[in-house]
Amino acid sequence: MKRSSSFWSLFFESKTALFGLILFLLFVAMAILAPLIAPQDPYDLSQIYLHNSFRPPGSSFWLGTDEMGRDVYSAILYGLRTSLYVGVVSTLLSMVIGLVIGLISGYYGGWVDRLMMRLADIQLSFPAILIALIVMALWGQGINKIIVAITIVSWVYYARTVRGVVLQEKEREYVQSARALGMGSGRVLFGEILPNVLSPVIVLATVRIAYAIVLEATLSFLGVGVPITEPSLGTLISNGYQALFSGYWWTSVFPGVVLVLLIISINLLGDRLREVMNPTGGD
């Protein structure tokens, strides 16, 4: 208890980290409460009127409307939902997969280790966005598909980090003595080693949520991301892009600003976590 309270007080010594956390929680709240606070359901066609198309920001539509006459503010709230959902779920999935593979690979070594690390090598010899792009282009749009695609390109970062830590930890005295006491390898691995792996993994996961959200937005911008029926912030930006040239900047600029602020808030948290939990670690 004492340890955790000092962690948070250390964490909040940085005012920018506090700002990041508040901003992030605000976005999360907006996403969760979207159905309650949005002025209209942007995907219920009975609430949208074509004669409202491309209204500039004003008192009736705070952030204007798009070409269908849809309220941009409402669309952003729902878009936040999709973006955050994809980012968080894909990060959790790749974290769990990478954690398990990294633990086993580092602890047992042998052919499993060689196979996994060779796989990681092949994957890292390619930029992530390229792999995700090909998977999505050939597989088709879909929220679950994009979560799988992001997981495919992300697990390797966790697996490598975890494996590195396990290789170090397993030579330490506490692990040796736990083994000497006759503890089974499963208990040593999950009971003794796992807690030491968690802090670098948490730091990594924070950074990767931001990356996952940007990756999803980029794929959606390229037209191979989430389906048009459940648009993310990236889809909204992409949809508004053509209108940009006609001067209807708000359809694309506002979702973009929200996306950028969301990523900044997560990166602020990630930076601070890295400073607090892992003072010596670099990038």
Partner: peptide
């Protein structure tokens, strides 16, 4: 923090 496509736009 700013996605590449957004900078371009």
């Amino acid at each position: 923090s700013i996605p590449v496509f957004w900078i371009g736009m």
